[in-house]
């Protein structure tokens, strides 16, 4: 299974980005082989609906799981509908993409069971 990890940088040793919709990029890692690719997040500068756009983007990349720091209601609903597992990693400035992946592999990341915060645009739903 492929895991999309939000990052501010270029690769596995780059810092983990705790934002989902407006993260700079996603590092897509194959859990079995360890091969990875970097994908610029097209939603980073979206006027609105960044969570939805980013979610559609990672679904399109074929990710079965995502590691990020927070999921808004729109992102959560979209990823959940696509059956993508959402994991939460801490917003620690020292955490790298590889570090977040290691936490997932050792089973110490919590699954997001609901949106972690209200949307940027304040959906009441």
């Amino acid at each position: 299974m492929k895991v999309a990890i939000s990052t501010t940088g270029e690769g596995l040793e780059s810092p983990f980005d705790s934002r989902f919709g407006r993260t700079a990029a996603f590092c897509l890692v194959d859990r079995a082989s360890g091969e990875w690719t970097r994908h610029e997040n097209p939603a980073q500068a979206a006027a609105g609906g960044a969570g939805v756009e980013a979610a559609r983007f990672v679904v399109g990349l074929g990710a079965g799981a995502v590691i990020s720091g927070a999921y808004g209601p729109h992102a959560f609903a979209t990823l959940a509908a696509a059956g993508v597992e959402m994991y939460l990693a801490p917003a620690d400035p020292d955490l790298t993409v590889a570090g977040a992946l290691a936490l997932l592999q050792e089973g110490s990341l919590r699954r997001a069971e609901a949106a972690t915060h209200a949307g940027h645009h304040g959906s009441a739903s």
């Binding site: 407006r22 500068a45 979206a46 006027a47 609105g48 940027h120 645009h121």
Partner: peptide, 9 residues
């Protein structure tokens, strides 16, 4: 308009 996006930036 769009100051929300600019604020975020």
């Amino acid at each position: 308009e769009n100051s929300g996006k600019l604020v975020a930036l």
